[in-house]
């Protein structure tokens, strides 16, 4: 049972790479939002690959997490900016980046631990965009509904997971407990990835005529 998360983790790195590649196939064919999302997938895949490599050698990979959540915030904000067409999103993106930078300047030690406030803030903002996008899609058929569903499912639930991240660095927490909580997170991330795949498969696959 305890082995499963490790396997699931490996599959996720592989899936992240596959998703980035298949989305790149139609890169020039589809609109801006698609391009931004593809770049997001590529960056996330690279970060995951590096953290995976670090973890293999049991090096501390925690600082990559900052790259992960900040790039996620930037790309997701731009993605929703393209879908919602509201300049307010750019303003919030700017403000969010200022707040996170200020955090790092004021307390450089958080570079070596989970930035719980930063990640909670950025994920909550992205969840808000996803809900607004849902609302806008009630009566009209909009693109990226499956991705939006994935964002809602994964980003809401993972807020608490990442917010409690520092607890997992604590040496006294039993390994089993860490694994179980990690399993939940990985399972949800897997669902997110499957939804991203389905979005591609249903709407952006290059179909042979």
């Amino acid at each position: 049972m305890s082995e499963i998360p490790i396997y699931l983790g490996d599959i996720q790195v592989l899936l992240a790479l596959i998703l980035a590649v298949i989305y790149f196939i139609g890169f020039s064919k589809y609109g801006k939002a698609y391009k931004i999302f593809t770049l997001y997938l590529a960056v996330i895949a690279i970060i995951q690959l590096i953290t995976f490599y670090y973890a293999l050698y049991k090096w501390n990979n925690i600082f990559f997490f900052h790259f992960y959540f900040i790039s996620q915030f930037i790309f997701m904000s731009l993605f929703y900016y393209n879908l919602l067409k509201n300049n307010f999103i750019l303003l919030i993106l700017g403000l969010g980046l200022v707040v996170i930078s200020a955090q790092f300047v004021l307390d450089p030690t958080i570079f070596y631990e989970y930035n719980t406030y930063g990640v909670s803030l950025t994920q909550s903002i992205i969840v808000l965009y996803a809900i607004i996008y849902y609302y806008r899609s009630l009566s009209v058929a909009n693109p990226f509904m499956l991705i939006n569903t994935g964002v809602l499912l994964y980003f809401i639930t993972s807020i608490l997971f990442f917010a409690s991240g520092n607890l997992f660095l604590h040496p006294d927490i039993p390994k089993e407990t860490k694994r179980y909580i990690g399993l939940i997170n990985q399972f949800l991330y897997f669902v997110f990835q499957v939804l991203i795949f389905l979005e591609w498969y249903r709407n952006y696959r290059i179909k042979k005529v």
């Binding site: 809401i156 639930t157 807020i159 179980y180 909580i181 939940i184």
Partner: peptide
């Protein structure tokens, strides 16, 4: 508490 919280969020 975290587990319950995550379940509730799901």
């Amino acid at each position: 508490i975290i587990l319950i919280g995550i379940s509730l969020l799901i």
